[in-house]
Amino acid sequence: MPPSFLNLIQTFEFEFAQIALIATVLITLMCGCLSPVVVLKQRAYLGDTLSHLVFPGVIAGIIIAKFSSFPFWACVLIGATVTAFIGNFISEWILKTLKIPPDASAIICLTSFFAIGIIAISSNKGTRIDPESILFGDVLTLGANDLYVLLFSLIIVFISIISLRKHWDAWLSDPEFAEIVGFKVKLLDRLFPFLMTFAILSGIFAVGGLMISALLTLPTIIYQPRSVFSPIVVLLSFIGGILGILIAFSFNWPVGPSIVLVGFITILTKTFVVHLQTQRRI
């Protein structure tokens, strides 16, 4: 066995590497389940938006934790959840009232909430937080408790997708027809932003908001599914995660960006192949 491969295997004897591997598997499975809904509903930008919306909430959580007896993680989680939902609500309100494109209303909230977070940091000099840690995360700093949160999120997302599979398909395909024949359109209208926020919040400290947004998008671009739950999409997400973490440990790269890079290279390859096929047909 080559020595570099042996070193890689030995890395997984450490607890931090085992936790990172399990966390990556859980996150990629969760993103594989939710990815078709996100892409087919044309809400890929929401991941990016949510990762910025939670920023002021995390800062507020850290400040509250300093002056209260509540656990640090609870303050940060509640803060992030509150600002994510407020930001989502404002974005939808602007969208529906001003009738502007959804990405424009999301960008308005994204930049404004990030700006609020930056002002909050500069106004509280004692608070040491790096905006990059929210956007890019660090899977190597996770503990065993984080794995339970990720497992819980995976179960919630999986059950929501599988148990309502017919309804998701109809909602994605033609919501007005779906509503008339009795599919649960109104329920899914409410459930989708909740699941999306939940998935991003659960993975934000592991791979970061931007990375989870990419993981929610990449698998469905690589393989276009014909139903909301596609085992191929989940498998692709899983393989991308495993390859990403192996590359990260081999070259001492950060895990989240390595997984995203694997997905990006796959998409470039697919685009090149499709381009060649189109050229041949012409």
């Binding site: 087919l40 044309q42 017919k166 398909d169 395909s173 033609d174 027809f177 024949v181 014909r226």
Partner: peptide
Amino acid sequence: NRYFHMTVQDFVKQGFGP
């Protein structure tokens, strides 16, 4: 939805309801 490549059979099947 033009991004959702559902088969024609599955599409018509939706007419039976949930």
